[in-house]
Each structure stands twice: as structure tokens, then as C-alpha cells.
Amino acid sequence: MQWTAIVVETTSEVVEAVSYLLTEAGANGIQVEDAADYAQLKPGKYGPYGEIVDPESLKHRQSGAAITGYFPPNQFGPELIDEIKTRVAKLNEFGLNPGSFKVTFAPVDETDWATEWQKYYHPVRVTHELTIVPQWETYQAHDSEKIIFMDPGMAFGTGTHPTTQLMLQALEISLRGGERMIDVGTGSGILSIAAKLLGAGDVRAYDIDQIAVDSARRNIELNPQAQGITFGVNSLLDGIHTQVDLIVANILAEIIVPLVPQAFENLTPGGKFLTSGIISDKFELCRDTMIKQGFKIDQTLRMKDWYGIIAHKPAEDED
């Protein structure tokens, strides 16, 4: 069966946003080639935050990023190209710079793209404790490493993008053990799996996309230590009224803003709200929205142009 690959060549800054746009337009698979990911690789076979491959041996882009969306025959039409061009151009309105982007397309056999992206995905140690390993590779854990095996398939969250790494760092900082947690926009399920490995208790994960939920469930099967996560299809926290100790969301800033009051409602006093996916131009918007809602900002994390925020809902006896 012949599919269509739509490729958006643009800046590293808009990788997450363009990936989201392509998925929303009907793409059943996303492949990202980002020069910024290569720039973060560090030599050293088993050193802290080092790779188990030689970065110099990897073919990579020299600048910018190319995001490829794979569309089945019933999802693609010539008018889709104009729609994607228009939506990428409008990212400027949200403080994201797509640069002099280019959108192209070409037919491709389904069997060709199904495994093509795997060559860009290698084991990477993303925090002091967490190392992410593709399920098709063998890796021996060392010292205190906790291994997350991933087959990201058609969902986001391989651990290589700064937004995911910031959230994993925030989880490692914040978790003490036994917390009840909600993962909003779970994608590949990587944050829920990491939370379980770091000692979280009851974990519920939601995504608006059934493909993402199915992918996350498959990744749970690769990580027996993370069993027991509950998944569901849901838009943010719409219709959810509960009390948990921790809410995490690695999503775009524009989506974090309407999530803020929902997170505040669903957190216990003292509960923590961890967010990432915040481009630098949107950091103040997200921070100020949280403060206005009543959150206290505990810590901000930054990697290049991306921010993460660790906040908490004040305890009842807290000033």
C-alpha cells in the first residue's frame, strides 16, 4: 500500500509543534531528524550522560530539522500541503520561529517507513538514574541506572528532545515514592514509565490520540517494572475530578495554559505540577498563569530555548 510522506524542513525550535500539526492533520507516523539532537550527544561508552555509540559515526543533519509525517492513502490530498504550509507559517503568532521552512511530499511504501526511523534512535542516559534504550538493542545497566525500554512507534517521546529530558529531570527531582500521579498527553508513555521506575504509586495516563495510548500500552509491556499504569483517551483533564499528588504534562505552552486550573483542582494541597514543552517566549505566560491560579513556583529548568517548571499547590497551612 502506497502512503505519502510530507516533509517539513524548518528550525529545531518548532519540532514539537510541527509534529503535533502533522499528527492532527492525519499523519499515522512521525519521523524527526534534528541537528539539535545530535549536538547533545556526548562521547563516552558508559560515562555519565554519554552514549554507547560514537556520535561521529552517526549520519545527521548539519542544521535545522526535518519532520516527516506519513499519511495513508485515505488521509492525503494535494490540498493538505497548502493547509500544512499555512499552519506552519502561523507558528510565528505563537512566538515560535519556523524560519524559511519548506514543505515537500513524495510517495512511499508502508514497509519502507515502518523501520526507517529506527536508525536515528540510540540508547541515551538522560538523567543521573534514567537511561532510555530502544527495545531492539541490548544494553547492560551499570551502577544505579534504571532502564526504560522504548518502541516509540507512532507516538512522541523518545527521550531525545529537550522537553522530554527536562520533564524526566523534573520527575527525578520531585518524586519521593508512592505518589498518585496523572500524566497528561502521555504520548509514548515515557513519563509514566519513568515515574513508576522512580517509585510513583498509582499512575494514570491520558492522551487525546488513541494511537498514542496504544503505543504507550505496548511500551509498558517492554518494562515489567512499570506494570499497573492505567491508560485512557481524554482531552487534558476534561471531566476528571479527583485528588492526586502529582500531575505532569509535556505539551505545548498554549495547551498548558487551559490545563492550569484543571491541574489545580485535581491536586491535593502540597501536590506538585510539572510542566515542559515551554518555548522561551512562552515561559512568562505559563509561569504567570500558574501564579495567578495560586500555584507556587519551586524551580525552573532550562535546556537551550526550552523550559520546564516545577510548581506546587500550597498546603492548607502554607502562607
Rank of each mutant, 00 (worst) to 15 (best):
L285Y: 03
L222Q: 12
K119Y: 06
D202A: 14
L171V: 13
A66D: 05
G270E: 01
A89W: 02
W306Q: 06
D109K: 11
G153F: 00
Q40Y: 10
D319P: 13
D202M: 11
E221Q: 15
L91Q: 05
Q75M: 14
W136P: 10
A170S: 14
M167F: 02
A212R: 02
K296D: 07
V257I: 15
L222S: 08
A253R: 00
G153Q: 13
P152T: 11
Q140T: 15
V213A: 01
S276D: 03
W113K: 05
G239T: 11
G201Q: 06
L246E: 00
F76H: 00
D109N: 11
G185L: 02
V133F: 01
E110Y: 09
V8H: 04
P78A: 07
F105R: 10
T163E: 04
A65Q: 03
T268I: 12
A36E: 14
V244L: 03
I30Q: 03
E145Q: 15
Q62I: 08
L259M: 06
F101I: 08
A253V: 08
P73E: 13
F76E: 00
N92H: 13
Q262F: 04
L285A: 13
V124S: 10
E137Y: 10
G189A: 09
G153M: 10
G50D: 08
G228T: 10
V233R: 14
L191W: 01
V184M: 07
R287L: 11
Q299I: 07
F295D: 00
E79N: 12
K282Q: 15
G228E: 08
K85P: 04
K85L: 05
I30C: 03
Y20K: 09
R125D: 03
E16A: 12
Q293F: 04
Y121K: 03
Y20R: 07
I190P: 01
G187A: 06
P55H: 09
H312D: 12
Y307M: 02
S174T: 15
G29M: 12
N97D: 15
D245I: 04
T268E: 08
I173M: 10
V244Q: 02
I132D: 01
H128E: 15
L237A: 07
V244F: 02
G69D: 08
Q135A: 14
P55W: 11
P134I: 12
S57F: 05
H161M: 06
L130I: 15
M150K: 04
V53I: 15
Q169K: 15
A27K: 06
G228R: 08
N97Y: 11
G64E: 01
